[in-house]
């Protein structure tokens, strides 16, 4: 017998005691919102708890805000996913930031030498201070938001949900479309040395979220 058949046979033999009925009902209602008095306020508070910086701006001010944040952070070149807002791109270009397209695809070394990356996000979770990327065209493939040391993410207010269950419900469509997902809660961190939290190990050491309302 090959390994597959043998493991399946062992499973079935091991479960000889199982009945035929459905069994093991799960007493849980999926996709519920967690009641929060102020979803966006909670999102900001929780992100900051994880040392991410959040800047709340009116939607039309996103372009100038990007320019300001990149300048303050000393980022002179940034990877720019193909599907990210052209108006924001123009604003950043006009401010003298070098905008780098992933076409042809950047090598790992090129990404490592790039100052930062700007992306959108698919959904954000208030209760946990999380943004989730599904790596659609306005976010770019996974390596873009991983290798550069600075990540600026733009989240629309209407993308912020209360808690994990609502986010999972939103993300079902991305999964069905075969997209990978990256859940990001604050910056990279480790507690491996005496349980002391250290920010910034391998992922981008700086995460800035621009929340556009």
């Amino acid at each position: 017998m090959n390994a597959r058949d043998e493991i399946l046979a062992r499973v079935r033999a091991g479960l000889a005691d199982r009945g035929t009925g459905a069994g093991h009902p799960v007493d849980w209602v999926y996709g519920r919102a967690t009641p929060l008095p102020d979803v966006l306020g909670r999102f900001v508070e929780r992100c900051e708890d994880y040392q991410a910086r959040v800047i709340r701006v009116a939607a039309p001010d996103v372009g100038p805000t990007l320019v300001r944040v990149l300048r303050e952070s000393g980022i002179t070149s940034a990877v720019w996913p193909a599907g990210l807002d052209a108006g924001w791109r123009a604003a950043v270009l006009a401010a003298g930031v070098t905008v780098i397209a992933d076409d042809p695809p950047l090598t790992r070394r090129q990404l490592d030498e790039t100052g930062g990356v700007v992306t959108a996000a698919r959904v954000a979770v208030a209760e946990t201070g999380t943004i989730v990327l599904d790596h659609a065209a306005d976010q770019g493939r996974r390596a873009l938001s991983l290798v550069p040391d600075f990540h600026l993410a733009i989240v629309r207010g209407d993308q912020v949900v209360s808690d994990v269950p609502e986010a999972v419900a939103v993300l079902r469509a991305s999964i069905d479309a075969g997209r990978p997902l990256t859940w990001i809660s604050g910056g990279s961190a480790t507690s491996d040395i005496e349980l002391e939290r250290v920010e910034g190990v391998h992922g981008p050491r700086t995460l800035v979220i621009v929340l556009a309302e």
Partner: peptide
């Protein structure tokens, strides 16, 4: 933690 810093999900090859 309320959420760990990174969670990756992938489905075969993208």
């Amino acid at each position: 933690e309320r959420m760990n810093p990174y969670t990756s999900m992938w489905t075969g090859v993208t």
